[in-house]
Write a protein that binds this DNA or RNA. Structure first.
Length: 843
RNA sequence: GGCCCCGUGGCGGAAUUGGUAGACGCAACGGACUUAAAAUCCGUAGUUCCGAAAGGAACGUGCCCGUUCGAGUCGGGCCGGGGCCA
C-alpha cells in the first residue's frame, strides 16, 4: 500500500473544493446560522505560526458546525493599513499600496495551502477604497449623531520624526524610531465619544457569558468605574476650586490641595508667574502614558494660594500644581491625604507636609499608629476626624457627603475610560473626511464626494506627514461655501478599521456600509477567536462601534461577539552560540540530548522556550513545515496536547509524530478491501468496537463543541488504538468505525479525510458530509470498575454491573485478599458505598 | 501594592468537578520483522523500599495546616511563575 502523499492530495482537494464552491456561504438558508471568525491578519508579508494556530482552530470549528447542519459564515480579510507599510515604503522605496497588496497575495496563497474552509468571495482589505469609503460614511454619521468631536489634546510628539506617537511607541520617554526624547504637545484632534457608553460597556460585560472571565475583568478594570464626591474649596484669591475624590472620608487628613498642570486655573496663574509657566513646561516633557507619569518623581509648585477646609473656616491648605494630577480624570484637582494615598504620601514627604492618619486598622492602636513609607489604604475606623471618629470608612464617606451636599457637593461616578483619540498624522490610513475652511470652519465632506481617496503616490522623503506635504491632495474646495479649503490630513487610527470589519463580512459588496438584512441575520459573531493581546482595546472599540452603529441606524445588535476565545502563543526553544548570538532552529542539530551547530559542530546553549520572535530567531516557518509534511500535519500539531488557551511549544519530535499519525490513519482507513460496501448497516451487530466507535463520536463531539481540541485529539488516538486492537471485528462494524473515524478527523485533517473517504468508497466531499450521531444505547457501560478502599487507601477493585446493590458490593469488597489483610485485627465501623464508584471501609 | 490565573512523571498534559492520580501523546527501554537501517507492529514504564521471583509495602499532584469516610479538586497561610491595574 502506498504511503499517503500529502503534497499531491492537499493541492488536489484544495482545487476540488474551490471548483465545487464547497465553502461559499449562501446569503439565505433554512439552516441555523453560525458565524465563526478569527481575528484578521495584518499583511506583514508571510503567515507566521501564530496565524496557523489561530486559523486552524477557527477552521476546525467552522467545518464541525457545517457538518452539524449549520449554515456557516467563515470569512477572511486583511487589516491592511498601518505603520509597517510606511516603513517598508521608506526603506525600500516601494509604494505602501503595492507592498501591501503583494503581501496579501502571498499570504492568501499560504492560507489556501492550509486548507481553510473560507468563503473567499467575501474577502476585502481595509485599505480597499471600497471598504474605507464606507468607514468614512460611518464617521460622518457618527459626527451627525454627536459621537465625534474635535478637541485639543496632549499627544506624544517626536521632535525628530515630526510625528505623533502612540503611547506604545514611547519607551522610557524616547521615541521608538528616532530615539529622541518625546515631548507633550497640544494638537487639535478628532475623538470618538466612547465615554458616552462607559456605563453600558461596563454593565453589558455581565451578559457576555461565553467570554473568558479574565478578559471581562480586564475590560472592567480598563473602564474603571469609581464612585466619589465632587465638592468645592474656596481659595484665598476668591476663586472656587472643584475637587473630585473617591475618599471623602479622609478629608480631615488633608494636608494640601493640588492642581493638574493642565488645569484652567493653572494656566491662568502661569500667565502671571513665569516660574510656574516653566514648571508646567517641565511637566509636559514627560509622555502622556499614565504609567509613565506614575513612575516619574512627584513634583509640585507652591502657588502661594491657600484653600479653606470645607469643615473648618480657620483651617487652610496650601495649593500646589503637581505633575501627578491628571486633567483627564475627575476635575483635574485633588485634595491630598498623604496617610492614605501613596502618591500623596510621596509628595508630602518631598515637600515636608503633615502626614496625619485618619483611618486606623482594626488591629492597630490609634494612639501609636503611624505611617512610614507606605500609605494605609485598607479598611478601619476613623480617628483624628472630629465628628467622623469611630465610623467605618464607608459610613464616613456617607457622612461627609451628607454634610457637604448642603454646600453644593454631589456624589458622582467617575470612569477611568477616556474618549478615543482617532486622529493619526500618518499617510497610510483611512483619510478623515473633513475639510477646514477659513470661512466655514470644519466642514464634513459631502457624502456624494466619498470616498476621500488616498493619493496614488505618497512621497516619503518629507518630514512629518506626507499628506500634509502634498498640496494637490491637500487643497480642495469647501463643501459649504465652495471657497478654498484644505483637507484634514490626518487618518483614522487603524483600530477603527478593525472595529466593524466583522459587520462588513456579512455582505462585503453592499453599496452601503451595512446590508441590514445580512447583518441582522448573521450577527452577532457566534465564536470569535484571537490573541489575548486584543483583550482590551480592539474588543472594547468593537463593542463601542456596534453601539454607535446602532445609534446611527445600521444595526439592531447589542454586542458584536457572543463567544470569545483567546488562544495562546506558539513558543520554541532558544539557542545561542558561545559568543551569545541567537541561532535559528534550522542551524541546530541535536545529539545525545545536547545541541550543536550543524555547520561547525560547535556546542550550542539551549535556552528556555519563548514566544517565537525574529529577534530571538526561534521561529519556524509554516511554509517549510507544510512543504515537508503537509497542512494536515501542522494543523494536527496545533490542536494536539496543549489546551488551546495556553502557550504551545513547537518541537520537531512533535511534528514527526503528527506526521506518523497521518500515515497511521491512512493505513487504517485505506484498507477497505473485504469491507462491505458503504451504507451497510452495523446496527444489530454486537461488538466492543461498536461501543468504542459510539463513545468516540460522543466524546469528540462534546470536546469540539467546547473548543477543547487537545482532548478531542486524545479521544481520536484512543479510538484508533481501539480499531487496531480489534482487527477481526465484523466487516460492517469495522466499516462503521472507519467511517466514523474519517468523519471525526475531517474538521482537523480535512485533506487526509477526503482521501480516506474516497478510499472507503464514498463520493466527495467528506467536507459536505453530515456529522456522525452517537447511539445512546451503545454508550451505556456494561460493567463498572469500583475502587475498594480501607480508610481511604486503595486496596483493590471489583467489577460489577452498573447499579449493583450495595450489599453485594460490600460482600465483594470484603472478599478481596488485600482488604482482608488490611482489616486483620480490626473491625469495620462504617462502610461507605458510592454507587458505581467506590466502597470505602472505615476501620 | 491591589486584583486575577497557574504550579501534577524526564516532557506536553488527562482526571467524569470531592470518589481508582498520571488517560492520550512525546521522549526512553525491551522484543518482533529486516542482511542492516528506516518505517511498522507488540510490550514495559510515578518514586523508593522488601523479595530470586510471583508479589508486597510505603510515599506521591510546589510547601505547611485544616475540613472530610475520602482532597490534585474545598478553606486558611506561605513559596514560586504569569497576567491586568496601579
Amino acid at each position: 500500500m502506498a504511503r499517503y502523499n500529502a503534497k499531491q492530495s492537499e493541492s488536489r482537494w484544495q482545487v476540488a473544493w474551490d471548483e465545487a464552491q464547497v465553502f461559499a456561504t449562501p446569503a439565505h438558508s433554512a439552516k441555523p446560522k453560525y458565524y465563526v471568525l478569527e481575528m484578521f491578519p495584518y499583511p506583514s508579508g508571510r503567515i507566521h505560526i501564530g496565524h496557523v494556530r489561530n486559523y486552524t482552530m477557527g477552521d476546525v470549528l467552522a467545518r464541525f458546525r457545517r457538518a452539524q447542519g449549520y449554515s456557516v459564515l467563515h470569512p477572511m480579510g486583511w487589516d491592511a493599513f498601518g505603520l509597517p507599510a510606511e516603513n517598508a515604503a521608506r526603506e525600500k522605496g516601494v509604494s505602501p499600496r503595492d507592498w501591501t497588496y503583494a503581501n496579501i497575495a502571498t499570504m492568501r496563497d499560504q492560507l489556501k495551502q492550509m486548507g481553510l474552509s473560507i468563503d473567499w468571495t467575501r474577502e476585502f482589505a481595509t485599505c480597499d477604497a471600497g471598504y474605507y469609503r464606507h468607514q468614512q460614511k460611518l464617521f460622518l454619521d457618527f459626527y451627525r449623531e454627536g459621537l465625534v468631536y474635535r478637541s485639543e489634546a496632549d499627544v506624544n510628539w517626536d521632535p525628530v520624526d515630526q510625528t505623533v506617537l502612540a503611547n506604545e511607541q514611547v519607551t522610557d520617554g524616547l521615541g521608538w524610531r528616532s530615539g529622541a526624547p518625546v515631548e507633550r504637545k497640544k494638537l487639535s484632534q478628532w475623538f470618538l465619544k466612547i465615554t458616552a457608553y462607559s456605563q453600558d460597556l461596563l454593565a453589558a460585560l455581565d451578559g457576555l457569558d461565553r467570554w473568558p472571565e479574565k478578559v471581562r475583568l480586564m475590560q472592567k478594570n480598563w473602564i474603571g468605574r469609581s464612585e466619589g464626591l465632587r465638592f468645592t474649596f474656596t481659595l484665598s484669591n476668591g476663586e472656587k476650586l472643584d475637587i473630585f475624590t473617591t475618599r471623602p472620608d479622609t478629608l480631615f487628613g488633608a494636608s494640601f490641595a493640588a492642581l493638574s498642570p493642565d488645569h484652567p486655573l493653572t494656566e491662568e496663574l502661569a500667565k502671571k508667574d513665569p516660574k510656574l509657566a516653566a514648571f508646567v513646561a517641565e511637566c509636559r516633557r514627560v509622555g502622556t502614558a499614565e504609567a509613565e507619569i506614575e513612575k516619574a518623581e512627584k513634583l509640585g509648585y507652591d502657588t502661594a494660594i491657600t484653600a479653606t477646609h470645607p469643615f473648618d473656616p480657620d483651617w487652610t491648605l496650601p495649593v500646589y500644581v503637581a505633575n501627578f494630577v491628571l486633567m483627564g480624570y475627575g476635575t483635574g484637582a485633588i485634595f491630598g491625604c498623604p496617610a492614605h494615598d501613596q502618591r500623596d504620601l510621596e509628595f508630602a514627604r518631598k515637600y515636608k507636609l503633615p502626614v496625619l492618619p485618619v483611618v486606623i486598622p482594626d488591629d492597630a492602636d490609634p494612639t501609636s499608629f503611624t505611617i512610614g513609607d507606605e500609605a494605609y489604604v485598607g479598611p478601619g475606623r476613623l480617628a483624628n476626624s472630629r465628628f467622623l471618629d469611630g465610623l467605618e470608612v464607608e459610613a464616613a464617606k456617607d457622612e461627609v457627603a451628607k454634610r457637604l451636599e448642603s454646600q453644593g457637593a454631589a456624589r458622582t461616578v467617575q470612569y477611568r475610560l477616556r474618549d478615543w483619540l482617532v486622529s493619526r498624522q500618518r499617510p497610510w490610513g483611512c483619510p478623515i473626511p473633513m475639510v477646514h475652511c477659513a470661512h466655514c470652519g470644519v466642514v464634513p465632506v459631502k457624502e456624494s464626494d466619498l470616498p476621500v481617496k488616498l493619493p496614488e503616490t505618497i512621497a516619503f522623503n518629507v518630514k512629518g506627514n506626507p499628506l500634509e506635504a502634498d498640496p494637490a491632495w491637500k487643497h480642495t474646495q469647501c463643501p459649504n461655501c465652495g471657497g478654498e479649503a484644505v483637507r484634514d490630513t490626518d487618518t483614522l487610527d487603524t483600530f477603527v478599521d478593525s472595529s466593524w470589519y466583522f459587520v462588513r463580512f456579512t455582505d462585503s459588496h453592499a453599496g452601503v456600509p451595512v446590508n441590514r438584512d445580512a447583518a441582522d441575520y448573521w450577527l452577532p459573531v457566534d465564536q470569535y477567536i484571537g490573541g489575548i493581546e486584543h483583550a482590551i482595546l480592539h474588543l472594547l472599540y468593537a463593542r463601542f462601534f456596534v453601539r454607535a452603529m446602532k445609534k446611527a441606524g445600521y444595526l439592531k445588535l447589542d454586542e458584536p461577539f457572543a463567544g470569545l476565545f483567546t488562544q495562546g502563543m506558539v513558543c520554541h526553544e532558544t539557542y545561542k552560540d558561545a559568543e551569545g548570538n541567537w541561532l535559528a532552529p534550522d542551524q541546530i542539530e541535536k545529539r545525545d540530548g545536547s545541541a550543536f551547530l550543524k555547520q561547525t559542530g560547535a556546542p550550542v546553549t539551549v535556552g528556555p522556550s519563548e514566544k517565537m520572535s525574529k529577534s530571538k530567531k526561534n521561529v519556524v516557518a509554516p511554509e517549510t513545515i507544510i512543504d515537508i509534511f503537509g497542512a494536515d500535519t501542522i494543523r494536527w500539531f496545533m490542536l494536539s496536547d496543549t489546551p488551546p488557551e495556553r502557550d504551545i511549544e513547537w518541537t520537531d519530535e512533535g511534528a514527526d509524530s503528527c506526521w506518523k499519525f497521518v500515515q497511521r490513519i491512512w493505513r487504517v482507513t485505506s484498507e477497505a478491501e473485504g469491507l462491505p460496501p458503504p451504507g451497510t448497516p452495523a446496527a444489530g451487530e454486537v461488538h466492543e468496537l461498536r461501543r468504542a466507535t459510539h463513545r468516540a463520536i460522543a466524546a469528540v463531539t462534546e470536546e469540539l463543541a467546547g473548543l477543547r481540541f487537545n482532548r478531542a485529539v486524545a479521544q481520536i488516538y484512543a479510538f484508533v488504538n481501539a480499531i487496531t486492537a480489534t482487527p477481526d471485528a465484523p466487516g460492517a462494524v469495522r466499516r462503521e468505525a472507519l467511517e466514523a473515524l474519517v468523519l471525526l478527523i475531517s474538521p482537523m485533517m480535512p485533506h487526509l479525510s477526503e482521501s480516506a473517504w474516497e478510499a472507503l468508497g464514498h463520493q466527495p466531499f467528506v467536507a459536505a458530509a453530515p456529522w456522525p450521531q452517537a447511539d445512546p444505547s451503545l454508550l451505556a457501560v456494561q460493567t463498572v470498575t469500583i475502587a475498594v478502599q480501607v480508610n481511604g487507601k486503595l486496596r483493590g477493585t471489583i467489577e460489577a454491573a452498573p447499579g449493583a446493590d450495595e450489599e453485594s458490593l460490600k460482600n465483594a469488597a470484603f472478599a478481596l485478599d488485600p482488604v482482608k489483610r488490611a482489616m486483620e485485627g480490626k473491625s469495620p465501623r462504617k462502610v461507605i458505598v458510592v454507587p458505581n464508584r467506590i466502597v470505602n471501609i472505615v476501620a
